[in-house]
Design a protein around this nucleic acid. Structure first.
Length: 438
RNA sequence: CGGAGCGUAGCGCAGUCUGGUAGCGCAUCUGCUUUGGGAGCAGAGGGUCCCGAGUUCGAAUCUCGGCGCUCCGACCA
């Protein structure tokens, strides 16, 4: 993409409305624009990141055996009356009436709807287990939206729902999602720690929150320092293996939110304990028949008996993750995207547009990198060097490739790694092979 | 929902106390000069001063009502 043609309204100054760093940087980097409190429009750069995260989440869900579908944002109130949550959910639920005065709502979650879909289609134990998920916008009318996209009212969430014949099966489904979550967050370049959690209004007796460590996180967390060195992707079993040893290993390493942590009863010596801050980005629940019973999600068992299915639900805050990743990965100059979610891999900076040599070298690099499948944002604007460097640091692409008249005279271009600030001058072809290999 | 603050050009702000018809920096546009870390000079455009009602010869400024946004607290992917 040529920056001269890209819709990227960056800001030099901090908008007054944004206080925390991820919100400020998202506005300054031209990723989002607020349209009302807690509701955001995603501009092209932000949208690319959102889609990258979504795709990683999707790949891991699919690998774990979950199947993607898509349910609507608007739901009929009747389903929620059946489960009893229409009255329980309170003002957080946005209620709507259509032109026929039917009661509708903008879905804050989809347990009722997925259970309805399931019960109408599945009648036999032979069709279990199933895990269905979608990635869809939700609305919760928060009392006080804040922190930009991290506590928006409208937000993009991946929510999966498992259906099993019995508690053992449900536990297996839960463990698969547990593994998928650890893999997902590791692939996003984040350290996410599962913590025993309250089950909240959804209910149930087995639940974990996944919390990303970030200095500016909203809740305090305590954990075994062993967490900091764990490499999930290296040690993870396959989804079809027996997951119990893995699950037990990871749930036995100490981790607790500050509400649950009690220094008096902590099993860890002070030197083993890490105190940090974190952001909740995922939450998984096993809740048995809480919805299948009232909604009548029942299948015939091997002996013809009626079995109420065991369910769990598994959420990941996709739009929240955009903010959370920035909270965990930025510096004074701007965002530092982990490679896997970066909106572009390389920012190509033409230091002197209009100069025949610079233009030719940049045009060729741009063309060749794209042909090699590398996502490039090419700054071909007629701006000063300083402005280009500042914008490139702000939007945080992993690699910056700078082409200027001075370097070209010596046959070199400059490559900078955004995360470390390391720069290297090297011949054009060497830079090209590094970027296509990395 | 309780407490606090803000609303003036795309962004950041001054002007409000003490009423006289709107200004600064950045951004934008034009020209010239510049060009390796947010350039210089000259010129230009851009405003329902959040909305409504009132007071007044006259309201960004005073009064009343409303709306929006932010922050702190109780709640949450």
């Amino acid at each position: 993409m040529r920056l001269s043609a890209y819709f990227l309204p960056t800001l030099k100054e901090n908008p007054n409305e944004a206080q925390i760093v991820s919100h400020r940087l998202m506005l300054r980097a031209g990723m989002v624009r607020q349209t009302s409190a807690g509701i955001y429009a995603w501009l092209p750069l932000g949208f690319r990141v959102l889609k990258k995260i979504e795709q990683i989440v999707r790949e891991e869900q699919n690998a774990a055996g979950a199947q993607e579908l898509l349910m609507p944002t608007i739901q009929p109130a009747e389903l929620w009356k059946e489960s009893g949550r229409y009255d329980d959910y309170g003002k957080e639920m946005l209620r709507i009436r259509d032109r026929h005065e039917r009661e509708m709502l903008f879905g804050p979650t989809n347990e009722e709807m997925i259970t309805d879909i399931f019960r109408s289609a599945v009648k036999s134990y032979r069709d279990l287990p199933r895990n269905l998920y979608h990635i869809q916008w939700k609305f919760r009318d928060e009392i006080r939206p804040r922190f930009g996209v991290m506590r928006g009212r409208e937000f993009l969430m991946k929510d999966a729902y498992s259906f099993d014949l019995d508690a053992d099966g449900a536990r297996r489904s839960y463990q698969k999602m547990f593994l998928a979550y650890l893999r997902t967050f590791a692939r996003l370049g984040m350290k996410a720690i599962p913590m025993q959690a309250d089950t909240g209004p959804i209910g149930g007796d087995l639940s974990h929150e996944f919390i990303i460590l970030a200095e500016t996180g909203e809740s305090g967390v305590f954990c075994d320092k062993e967490w900091l060195d764990l490499d999930v992707l290296a040690s993870a079993p396959g989804f079809d293996d027996d997951l119990t040893p893995f699950f037990e290993k990871y749930t036995n390493i100490y981790a607790a939110t500050d509400e649950k942590h009690d220094p008096a009863t902590s099993p860890l010596k002070p030197e083993e304990l890490v105190s940090a801050r974190g952001i909740e980005v995922g939450h998984i629940f096993y809740f048995g028949t809480k919805y299948s019973a009232p909604l009548g999600a029942v299948v015939a068992g091997p002996n013809g008996e009626q079995i109420t299915v065991e369910m769990g639900s598994y959420g990941i805050g996709v739009s929240r993750l955009v903010g959370a990743i920035i909270e965990a990965s930025h510096d004074d100059a701007g965002i530092i995207w982990p490679d896997e979610v970066a909106p572009f891999k390389v920012g190509l900076i033409n230091l002197k547009t209009g100069d025949a040599d610079c233009d030719r070298a940049c045009d060729e690099l741009y063309r060749d990198l794209q042909a090699a499948g590398v996502e490039v944002l090419y700054d071909d604007r007629n701006e000063r060097a300083g402005a280009k460097f500042a914008d490139m640091d702000l939007i945080g692409l992993p690699w910056q490739l700078t082409v200027g008249p001075r370097g070209l005279k010596n046959g070199v271009v400059e490559m900078k790694r955004r995360a470390t600030g390391e720069r290297e001058e090297l011949p054009r072809d060497a830079a090209f092979s590094k970027l296509t290999a990395a």
